[in-house]
Design a protein around this nucleic acid. Structure first.
Lengths: 247, 247
DNA sequence: CCGCAAAGTTGAACGTGTTCAACTTTGCGG
DNA sequence: CCGCAAAGTTGAACACGTTCAACTTTGCGG
């Protein structure tokens, strides 16, 4: 670091370009919030409580985090990092189903301690206006990383992806989102049902990929590609379709 | 109505077993809330505002509706009713793809006026603790009705559903949920992208059903059935799977 | 060492959803 | 017609997330 220059540290969204002093306070608030989220859940965690426990004023907390939701976003980012770290340990095997299973389980493992908090979590993440939504432009980087993780699952495996090679990672990511949603609702002991669902999903996905390589499924894979294109590109337009008037 | 007996009217959850007097107040509050939701959206609609415009006190509104979210649930139920009504008009054709397309479009048509309100809508519906969640036990009846709607799509069509006959309606309902979620995020003019997605989905679904009737897809359909069973039955246990310890 | 702009920090105040003890109205039993 | 219990109704009060004008601290230029 250049002498005479104030140390700069950036957070997830890089809100205030804080100095080292500010960064320390920021970290303290964040730590306190995380602990409170984990111990008391989202609703019982109050901004006043966080501020008091961190030994700062309420307004100061808002200097570093624009809202309570922004604190949740940090949570979200931390979990995604953890998922990637865990997944790396699992990607040594070659078998496609094993790799997929492993990465999916890794995600559930990472989230497990926060299951009681998941309800509020998903509530924040699902809001279209929220930057932490998995589909928002703000989380484009995180989304790309997550899709990249599933690209690794495919690329490092012994499975030839066939005609859906390009879109397979995205499809797997979508499946992972669905599983995550299921996990949020899963009240079975230790979320055992989600574990079962992961296994079913991995098996089914593997079989579907194999199927897609068979001749005679060209029309089908084309449809899948078209559907995914609709999901993906905001600007894409299908020929001759102008949208249907709302009655 | 028997003379001398207080008229009883029940709402969606049948909260207070109101008399005619209460029912009138209840309806007035509900109407005011609906109008406010439609005109100003969820966030800018305040309980004080509703009460004032309806000419009642805040506390009185809470006598009929336990929370602001409960008002949204009424909204939700009304839309489902409308969907069924619109769908009935579309189920005269025989072609499977047409029927599915029609029912899916009918749902979007019904929701269209409330798109700006959809973000808060889904936020309420997604919360696992919320009774209006599509997966909650409280909405079991509504869920059954919705699945039944897609059963009608299948049953009245010229398509032979094949080995997935039993679970097809549920699968289509899940697809509809996904499309609804997409619609919430869809900011394209008139939600044209969702219209395109509906068409893609109907085409793909039709082809998948045809495919499932082909020989050699038995293992696949078995996997699909297993996955759906995992999704459905809270108590089901797969042989030999005890769930994986969370690290 | 001084001045000063930027960063950090404060706590009162606002509007919100929600609760509740108290009050009023209703309508049936006697 | 008179209680009287149930239903309906009120508005003040509470805790919360959030805002903001004012104040304090920091650290560089001179």
């Amino acid at each position: 670091m250049v002498s005479g220059e104030v140390a700069r540290v950036e957070g997830v969204a890089g809100r205030p370009q804080g100095s080292v002093r500010g960064a320390a306070t920021r970290a303290l608030i964040l730590e306190t919030a995380m602990a409170s989220f984990r111990d008391q859940g989202y609703d019982r965690t109050t901004m006043r409580g966080i501020a008091q426990q961190a030994g700062v004023s309420v307004g100061n907390a808002y200097h570093y985090f624009g809202s309570k939701e922004e604190l949740v976003q940090e949570f979200y980012a931390a979990i995604q990092d953890g998922h990637r770290r865990r997944a790396a340990q699992v990607l040594s095997r070659r078998d496609f189903t094993d790799r997929l299973r492993g990465v999916l389980h890794a995600g559930i493992d990472e989230m497990a301690p926060y299951h009681s908090f998941a309800g509020s979590f998903v509530k924040v993440a699902i809001s279209p206006s929220s930057p932490s939504s998995p589909f928002s432009s703000e989380s484009a980087a995180a989304r790309a990383a997550a899709v990249g993780l599933f690209r690794d699952v495919v690329d490092g495996s012994d499975k030839r992806p066939g005609p859906l090679a390009q879109e397979l990672p995205e499809l797997l990511w979508l499946a992972y989102l669905g599983i995550t949603l299921f996990w949020v609702y899963d009240t079975s002991p230790n979320q055992a049902r989600t574990r079962r669902l992961v296994d079913s999903t991995a098996r089914l996905a593997s079989r579907l990929v194999s199927l897609s390589r068979l001749p005679g499924t060209r029309a089908l894979t084309d449809d899948v590609r078209a559907l995914l294109a609709d999901l993906r590109h905001p600007e894409a337009q299908a020929a001759g379709l102008t949208g249907r008037p709302a009655r």
